[in-house]
């Protein structure tokens, strides 16, 4: 059976979706339904329990697994505090560690992310750290007790696809815990590509939220992730850099045998 287990939970979908950037949060239930996603991430900084105004949590179906992220944290200490706050607010014990101290490219700080993961994993959190794709960081995260690693495909929000493909492939090949490709996936075809490469799952937000029809786009991603996973299991045919000619140049060498 093709199972994806994270934090002891067998997940029924390999597409994780984010809840930021939507024009109106009331579209989120339809997006989640059409994406068939089970793991839903939201920035804790946006969550407003007991809000007089709208609260993103009101739009996430009960049966989903909440993956609060530590967006806004600039170092390990802040990420740890946000994670603990999330738990105290009733968001469960899953957390996506996001530590960004670079406001130009918005690239994650791998070193601080490892530190935060060590602390939170020991406290019993199911930790999914968001990283720049670096093998040694990924290995340290495994040692630190991460439940999965989430390397980026290209800078967050850019919709530029799998620009870090070579590095992602190394992590997928070398790391034994689930690898969830996060950030930069702009098209369903790119999600399929990540799955074909062997990613365990992908996380998509901007590409769905900023599409003209987020609900349809969610459905397209659901299909693409499934297609990519099936292709991975079926094993892709070998790639060749040359065409296989019907009259090969060296065919004469075998003629004598005929």
């Amino acid at each position: 059976m093709d199972k994806l287990i994270i934090g002891g939970v067998e997940l029924r979908s390999r597409l994780f979706v984010g809840t930021g950037k939507f024009a109106n949060d009331n579209i989120i239930p339809a997006v989640i339904e059409n994406s068939q996603a089970q793991v839903i991430t939201m920035a804790l900084r946006r969550v407003d329990i007991g809000a007089k105004q709208e609260n993103v949590m009101d739009y996430i179906p009960q049966e989903c697994i909440l993956l609060p992220n530590t967006s806004g944290a600039r170092n390990a200490e802040e990420a740890v505090r946000i994670a603990r706050l999330a738990k105290a607010m009733g968001c469960g014990n899953w957390v996506k560690i996001e530590v960004i101290s670079d406001n130009k490219y918005l690239l994650p700080d791998n070193q601080e992310t490892v530190k935060a993961t060590e602390i939170l994993a020991k406290e019993g959190f199911v930790v999914l750290p968001y990283i720049s794709p670096d093998l040694m960081t990924a290995k340290r995260l495994v040692d630190a007790g991460a439940a999965a690693v989430m390397p980026l495909g290209s800078p967050i929000g850019t919709n530029r696809g799998l620009r870090t493909k070579e590095l992602l492939q190394i992590i997928i090949d070398e790391i034994d815990i689930p690898v969830v490709v996060d950030a930069g996936i702009g098209k369903p075809s790119e999600a399929a590509e990540a799955m074909e490469m062997g990613a365990s799952a992908v996380l998509v937000n901007t590409a769905i939220a900023t599409s003209a029809d987020p609900v349809k786009m969610a459905q397209a991603f659901a299909l693409a992730v499934k297609a990519g996973r099936i292709a991975r299991i079926a094993k892709l045919g070998p790639e060749s850099h040359y065409a296989q000619p019907s009259s090969p140049l060296t065919g004469f060498l075998n003629r004598g045998a005929l």
Binding site: N24, D48, E54, G72
Partner: peptide
């Protein structure tokens, strides 16, 4: 203001940080 922003197809965000 909240309604005007929604009418323009945008989401008014009330909370985007908390003290940690």
């Amino acid at each position: 203001m909240k309604q005007a922003i929604l009418n323009h197809g945008y989401q008014p965000v009330f909370k985007n940080w908390m003290a940690v």
